[in-house]
Design a protein around this nucleic acid. Structure first.
Length: 609
RNA sequence: GGGGGCGUAGCUCAACUGGUUAGAGCGCUGCCCUGUCACGGCAGAGGUUACGGGUUCGAGCCCCGCCGCUCCCGCCA
């Protein structure tokens, strides 16, 4: 028996044909003298009917014993559903298959959770779904996520090919690099004491490919980072990795805008307008207090340093006198915030280094606030005008000697307030709104006061803006990097930069700015510096988080829903029970001995029926 | 590393300030049912309340510990 059609194929035009379908028992409706089976495959559902007047008792009994999710093959004639029984519940609802032969290909055991009722399944414990991932993936919602992911990947490859890119694979057994994320390392039997590291990204290889003359490279690359996980972070993930030679920043913007336009059209039939806004790091911090702003709602940060320079409120005037800033946002309609919510906001603020969080509730025509009594009429007027204060508003202030910190504090508060307003129904954001923008002109270097050293804001291969190169050694803070991030709806979709292609500049960054010892630079990056000596073209690139992109287009809050076999927040695979222990002999081969202080209990064994 | 949430039948949930034999729907098992499509009807089985301690006359509920899942901060060049 071979199948003749899939389960979403039969229509009125097939009436009278003898067909064979194969699939899973989706739903059984046993009327005693008549049995209906919904048979399901990847494509859809078809109703089959068992009529005892035409069937052997044996076959009819077999049909009545069918369990949910058993795999069956059935053969029969297609007919129009009699009477007024067609249904628009399923696309095949006009017809049904009158079964003449039935074969059970695999009898399913009782399921650990229902999969034919999406309402229930949506609520099923994710732990259970991950343990029985194959059942979870059988659900139409999950199959559709995988399908869309595949379609996006195909479209992306087509687009990149059209643009003249070569897909090149790079090694996943790489070497450890200083800086960056914690790495997974892989011991190597043939070289005792030596380890590979899994790549955090193909960064070095893609630059080397430019030196190789590939000119246009891309890859859907697996990357590995041994860091703590989040809803949008997995220890292994996929990024669309791109690198090009002989280009400027605008070339990358153009390429990515074209790509995203194509993908959004394909996946959501949405025409996203291009080009995207290009906004400097300084401006996004100043207006939204975060380097990945969600611009779908306002509540922007306003600066009041000038207005409070001579204020009677010493906290504000003192901060300005010390070279700091006073900033405020208006959380429209949030005057009803509870004490607990205000405390939560204060906690967010102090967690970021604020001394406190000043606020004003505008209720019953009054400014309810511990600090408003210090404000002069002109200060109040300025607040009212610039923040467009009305009845029911909540005003929140951040004053800090550091401009950046004041911005970050209010940026975080802004997002928290937006969540509250959403929960109260006072802020509504359409599901099909996508606000893309480029964030540009990042500072090349940032300073870590704890470690007392400079580190690369993006990564150490990022090229400074040409005219800022002379400032590198003496005023690193003033050097702008040719780095860019693509942001949509408050999510960083990706980032990249124009790279350094001159060995002297790269050496300066490594040794004189980052203060990586020369011998370490030589052992870790020596091959790159060497490569750059033999004709390295100017080049640059970008990487997009592919899982995040797909999750966004699927409307999933978690990237776990668009990855076939994701890991839990602790990095475990609940289906295969990985990671696992290894045999003593394996350790011996690798010349490793364990020094485990606290025995980690083995995960609970799978329950077998 | 830190903070929050969750864990009760196979699944989703309930069980008042600690108080009888821990309930319901779905699923499962058996019987009935010839046009259903969440089919319907009747009956039944099914529980170490994640796990280990403690307080109490009495703990699903309170306390301590521990495991797992999840969300956030730190971290993720």
């Amino acid at each position: 028996m071979r199948r003749t059609h899939h389960c979403n194929e039969l229509r009125a035009q097939h009436i009278g044909e003898k067909v064979t379908l194969m699939g899973w028992v989706h739903l059984r409706r046993d009327l005693g003298g008549l049995i209906f089976i919904d048979i399901r495959d990847r494509e859809g559902i078809t109703q089959a009917v068992f009529d005892p007047s035409d069937l052997s008792a044996e076959l009819f009994n077999t049909a009545s014993s069918l369990r949910s999710e058993s795999v069956i093959a059935l053969t029969g004639k297609v007919r129009r559903r009699p009477g007024n029984n067609p249904t628009d519940r399923i696309p095949t609802g006009e017809i049904e298959v009158v079964v003449e032969a039935l074969e059970i290909l695999n009898q399913a055991a009782v399921l650990p959770f229902p999969i034919n009722d999406s309402e229930t399944t949506l609520k099923v414990n994710e732990e259970l779904r991950l343990q029985y991932r194959y059942l979870d993936l059988r659900r139409p919602e999950m199959i559709n996520n995988l399908r869309l992911r595949s379609k996006i990947a195909m479209e992306l490859r087509t687009y990149m090919d059209e643009q003249g890119f070569l897909e090149v694979e790079t090694p996943t057994l790489f070497k450890s690099t200083p800086e960056g994320a914690r790495e997974f390392i892989v011991p190597f039997r043939n070289m005792p004491g030596y380890f590979y590291a899994l790549p955090q990204s193909p960064q070095q290889f893609k630059q080397i490919l430019m030196v190789s003359g590939v000119e246009k490279y891309f890859q859907l690359a697996r990357c590995y980072r041994d860091e703590d996980l989040r809803a949008d972070r997995q220890p292994e993930f996929t990024q669309l990795d791109i690198e090009m030679s002989f280009i400027e920043r605008e070339d990358i913007y153009c390429l990515i805008e074209g790509l995203l336009k194509r993908i959004w059209k394909l996946a959501r039939n949405i025409d996203i307008p291009t080009p995207f806004a290009r906004i400097s790091f300084h401006e996004v911090m100043n207006r939204w207090g975060i380097d990945k702003p969600d611009t779908r709602f306002g509540m922007e940060l306003n600066d009041f340093s000038e207005e409070f320079k001579t204020s009677a409120f010493k906290v504000f005037s003192g901060t300005v006198a010390a070279g700091g800033v006073v900033k405020a946002i208006n959380a429209k309609g949030l005057a009803g915030a509870t004490q607990g919510q205000l405390e939560a906001m204060t906690e967010i603020a102090t967690g970021l280094g604020a001394k406190g969080l000043a606020s004003i509730k505008v209720e019953n025509g009054n400014w309810k606030s511990p600090i408003a009594k210090f404000f002069s009429e002109s200060e109040k007027e300025a607040l009212t005008r610039k923040l467009q204060i009305e009845e029911g508003d909540l005003i929140l202030f951040a004053a800090d000697k550091e401009w950046l910190r004041a911005c970050e504090i209010l940026g975080r508060i802004r997002l928290y307030c937006a969540e509250l307003l959403k929960a109260q129904g006072k802020l509504q954001i359409p599901a099909d709104q996508f606000n893309f923008l480029w964030v540009v002109d990042f500072p090349l270097m940032s300073y870590d006061p704890e470690m007392e050293r400079w580190y690369s804001s993006h990564h150490p291969f990022t090229s400074p803006v040409a005219e800022d190169i002379p400032l590198l050694k003496d005023a690193p803070l003033k050097v702008r990097g040719q780095h860019y991030d693509i942001v949509v709806n408050g999510v960083e979709l990706g980032g990249g930069s124009i790279r350094i292609h001159q060995p002297s500049v790269q050496k300066t960054i490594f040794e004189e700015v980052l203060k990586i010892p020369a011998d370490l630079v030589q052992s870790r990056f020596g091959y790159m510096l060497e490569a750059f000596r033999y004709g390295a073209p100017p080049h640059g690139g970008i990487a997009l988080g592919f899982d995040r992109l797909v999750a966004m287009l699927c409307g999933s809050a978690s990237i776990r829903d668009v990855i076939a076999f994701p890991k839990t927040m602790k990095g475990a695979c609940l289906m295969t029970q990985s990671p696992g222990k290894v045999e003593e002999s394996q350790l011996r081969d690798l010349h490793l001995t364990l020094n485990v202080k606290k025995e980690t209990p083995s995960p609970e064994p799978l329950q077998n029926s």
